[in-house]
Amino acid sequence: MNRERAAALGREPHGSSDDPDLLDFSANANPEVPDGVERVYRAAFERARTYPPEPPAAFRRAAADYVGCDPGDVVPTPGGLAAIRAAVALAVGEGDTALVPAPSFGEYAREVRLRGGEPSFADVDRVLDADPSGHALAVVCTPNNPTGTGYDRDALLAFAERCRAAGTVLLVDEAFLGFTERASLAGTDGVVVARALTKLFGLPGIRAGFAVATGDLGAALRGARRTWNLGAPALATGEYCLRQEEFVRETRERVRRERDRLRAALGERYAVAPSEAPYLLLDVGDRDVDRVIERARDRGVAVRDARSFRGLDAHVRVAVRRPAENDRLLTALGVGDEAGDDGGSSGGGSRGADADV
């Protein structure tokens, strides 16, 4: 990694508010956590007095059972972003290009640039039709952040086959896939799958996740992984959460039901993209985005300014939370409020081609 390049690259903006007076719809973590998880975390203190097991076999078995792969193909990481960084670092070198979806998670392009590569952006709706030839890496986020776009498994497998034929590593970010019924691509040759406990299990501060890869690619990821890269509390908590099948089922049902309800209600005032994720992307039309955000804050709700995503210039993203909290979001965004005070009128916005990732 080049020192000057790393110093020059700024940070990507992300959702999340630490204001205790605001109900946070700007981040996408589950507001619920599995029963018993605090007990497991606290009980791990004694284990934290010694180095964690190396390799962490129990965590790898739980992760493998969760996504349906061989435990030997699991590479534990401190969060999904660490899995993404590891994949990019192994695939991309100076002067390489990487096929990156847009609008999507800004860290993909940032990691590519950190390695001296250049992102080649493809529209998120057509990324699986793009030609991976000549690229060191291709990235797919499913469901995509911030649009909520999900991809058919057969189409993903066909794209993976084209990537293998082109000698292109395929990175599939499945950070939000656990909210859906779709099967993971974990264990597919030539593919690195990145997963996190952050979103589905509501534990962004634990920093636990994993990558999955097979063959030489998996061997390289395992070889590059730092020894003891997850602490004992993260390993114990992660192993426990990955076994909570009933919690996952209940979460999926709640999110599906509330997402449908929110989309119908918000659709009366905004253009709302279809979504398979625990969030919705809203096109505010010719309203002033800053006023929409400020109006929500004045009513005690934080929403995500989505203009930081490449190609979005009239958008906000909102999480799907519990029913009563979602009612507060609707009120904060003026649904059912005929007068409104966010400026402008309803209507479709546009994607700004030169917006930042």
Rank of each mutant, 00 (worst) to 15 (best):
A27E: 13
D260K: 01
L185H: 11
T168N: 11
L170R: 01
Y108E: 12
T147P: 14
V37G: 06
D70I: 14
A271D: 13
G190E: 05
P71Y: 07
G106T: 07
L312M: 09
E250R: 03
I84C: 02
D65F: 04
T214Q: 14
V318R: 00
H14V: 14
G343S: 02
D152F: 00
D290H: 14
R321G: 13
V289D: 03
N145A: 12
G148D: 02
P53C: 07
E107S: 14
G218F: 10
E12C: 14
V100F: 02
D19W: 00
R321P: 04
A6K: 08
V40D: 05
G267D: 01
A155P: 09
G116V: 11
G336W: 01
R110C: 06
D24G: 09
R252T: 04
I84F: 02
S345M: 03
V316F: 00
A355R: 14
A196E: 15
V88R: 03
L235R: 03
D173H: 00
A306T: 13
A102D: 04
G347C: 12
T331P: 04
D337P: 05
E107L: 15
G300T: 09
A208G: 06
P31L: 01
N326D: 15
D260L: 08
R195A: 09
M1V: 07
D189Y: 03
G202E: 13
G215N: 05
D327F: 01
S346T: 09
E107Q: 12
L217Q: 07
G348P: 13
A220G: 13
E46F: 10
R164Q: 03
P34C: 02
A277G: 05
